[in-house]
Amino acid sequence: MKAQNKRLAVLFDLRKCIGCNTCALACKSENDVPLGVWRNWVKRVEKGRYPHSREFFLPILCNNCEDPICVTVCPVNAGIKRPDGIVYIDPHRCIGCRYCMASCPYGVRYIHPIKKIAEKCYWCHHRVDAGLEPACVEACPTGAILFGDLNDPESEISRAVAENAVQVIKPESGTDPQTFYIGLDIESVEAKQTEDK
């Protein structure tokens, strides 16, 4: 049972992120994500006023939390947490009640417009099981995304998490998210769209 000793995680090095959206594009083509919904995306925030301004990029995907609220509230046990930490949805079990969408603090779930079931990023577990990296990690042109096993002290991600100041989005939500960020800007997390929907 090798899988049980793993704790998979994702680390975004925002110092390297150029906001090119390649990760979102790679995900769309790898996972056949329909129009209008996203499994990962890059939020763009501009801070300050010219000439003292800068754009910040916040790539977001499912945090595959250690204590996922979506799995806690799923009425049919369609949300499943694997021993290596990946949280996925059983497509044959889900009834599309949207309770997971309502309770997720990160808003990473959507209802597939045709299949009418909940879907989200599961770190491309079909690729991970085949020994590959998730599509977004492989596609990132600047190498800003790391993926690997936090329980292996020699892996690139655990060294990077150990040697840098890291942060997660919304630690107060109590879900113990496993997507880490280097150089996370709190203003760009909290900035909300001001105009109406």
């Binding site: 919904v37 996203w38 995306w41 890059v42 939020k43 763009r44 925030v45 501009e46 801070k47 300050g48 006023r49 301004s53 754009e55 969408m101 808003g107 959507y110 209802i111 203003e187 760009s188 900035a191 909300k192 769209q193 001001t194 929907k197």
Partner: peptide
């Protein structure tokens, strides 16, 4: 501080 969201997705 002026903070402006330039791009974000719309959730269902």
């Amino acid at each position: 501080m002026d903070t402006q969201v330039l791009y974000n997705i719309v959730h269902q």
